[in-house]
């Protein structure tokens, strides 16, 4: 069984937010109304997290990192779900079963990274957005929790294509939208256990770190950064 993971090279990242946009479109993540956004109900699966923010323009010291669901190896969110609406797949992806979710938001309360988002409302989407909905991903109704699932629909597609071509899944067949779109090629994605994959090479880097390492959740999204 593969173990999918990601490496984000912060030394390459230009903070262009192409991954944020790509994710939002790929996964039909709802664009919330202005009123909802004002009280902190924005919805992002991939977002830019400001770790440090010092000084005034133009002498500004900023440290931002792209943040998605860390797909923890020992996730705390799935433990508390009362109805198995979120679970860990054999390939390590923490998946969501939207028809099961009762909207109790217990998983959100127990995610130490606060990556999960709740559909507080179902707002009318801009017409241009509605036109370019991704047909492979369901549109979530109001009242349930959602989060990044490593573009799992792309895995299904890649598997089917590989099967039709009578071959095994190769490294690079299945990549999430954020990696595909990254202009700086700062994101690596693949099977962490496969010694021939690019992500396996990247993970050996000495610059490697994860967020909140001491919690023991063992995130499968790694960052690379030489120094602050």
């Amino acid at each position: 069984m593969p173990k999918y993971g990601m490496v984000i090279d912060l030394d390459k990242c230009t903070l262009c937010e192409a991954c944020v946009t790509a994710c939002k479109l790929e996964n039909n993540v709802q664009i919330v109304s202005k009123e909802d956004a004002a009280i902190g109900r924005t919805m992002f699966w991939m977002t830019m997290l400001t770790l440090e923010h010092e000084g005034q323009y133009p002498d500004i010291k900023l440290k931002r990192i792209p943040r998605l669901c860390f797909q923890c190896d020992k996730p705390s969110c799935i433990k508390t779900c009362p109805v198995r609406a979120t679970y860990k797949r054999e390939d390590g992806i923490i998946a969501q079963i939207y028809p099961n979710c009762i909207g109790c938001r217990y998983c959100m309360a127990n995610c130490p990274y606060t990556v999960k988002v709740f559909n507080w409302d179902r707002d009318k989407q801009p017409q241009q957005v509605e036109k370019c909905y991704n047909e492979d991903v369901s549109v979530r109704p109001k009242g349930i929790v959602e989060k990044c699932v490593f573009c799992i629909h792309r895995l299904q597609k890649a598997e089917e294509r590989a099967k039709a071509e009578y071959r095994e899944l190769r490294d690079g067949d299945y990549v999430p939208a954020c990696m595909e779109v990254c202009p700086a090629k700062a994101i690596y994605f693949g099977d962490l256990d496969d010694p021939h994959s690019k992500v396996f090479e990247a993970i050996k880097d000495y610059r490697r770190f994860t967020l909140q390492e001491d919690l023991g959740t063992i995130p499968k999204v790694y960052y690379l950064n030489a120094k602050d």
């Binding site: 508390t80 009362p82 109805v83 198995r84 009762i102 217990y106 109001k142 349930i144």
Partner: peptide, 26 residues
Amino acid sequence: HPLLDMGRPDRMLHLFERGRLQSPLL
């Protein structure tokens, strides 16, 4: 009150149908 707090109260019976006893909510 937890029922008031649920996003999808129509799915309340899931708690009995497919409840996970590992969850403190159960």
